[in-house]
Structure formats: structure tokens, C-alpha cells
Amino acid sequence: MKCLRINSGKGEYSLDGVTYEEINKIDKESILVIVDMILQPELQVEFDKDTGGQITNQAHKIIYTKLYEKFIDLERNKQQFVEETTELYRSAYEKYKIPEVESA
């Protein structure tokens, strides 16, 4: 699913891969939704790169390039990003977790 794309010199984002909004309309909640999608192991999220200055709107350019750079970085380190949050109390958790009985 493509979350960031470039269209007619402007940056655009999508939360469902179907409808796209101009990047200057993105807010923190929408960024968080994309982060959640990136962190889902089974979901393939794609972002268009602004190669050769396709984005002409300067405001769009600032937002788009920063988001692109950060999303790519997160995509690369997503496993570590999640694992770091489950280290605390890990050994006690393993010790007390009751194994789920598999249904026949």
C-alpha cells in the first residue's frame, strides 16, 4: 500500500491506499496511523521518493521529504522499535505466562 506519493508537483498521503490528501493537510494523528501501518509486520507500506525535485510546492517539499526520510528509517528498524518496548519484565512474564492450550 502506498502511503506517500507525488502528484502534479505536490506531495500527497493516504491512510487506505485509495484516497489521497495533500500533504499539507496531514496532522499528527494521521502520521500516527501511518506509523501503525509501518509497524504491522504483514503489511507492505510504500513511499514515493522525491527524486530530482518533482515537488515544486516548497511547503509540501519540507513536509514530504522529512516524512519520507523518517518513514523509511522506521520501516528499516521496525522490529527493533517494537522489541525494545517488550524488554521490561520479560523474564517474569515468561515465567508466569500460562501456555495457551491448543484446541484440537
Partner: peptide
């Protein structure tokens, strides 16, 4: 307001 300040993130508050 200019194109920069019109972007939502220009005045976004943190979580």
C-alpha cells in the same frame, strides 16, 4: 498566512 503557515503541521501540538 502563506503556504507554509497554512500547513496543518505548522501549528500542530505534540502528543
Amino acid at each position: 498566512q502563506d503556504e507554509y503557515s497554512k500547513a496543518i503541521l505548522f501549528s500542530e501540538t505534540p502528543f
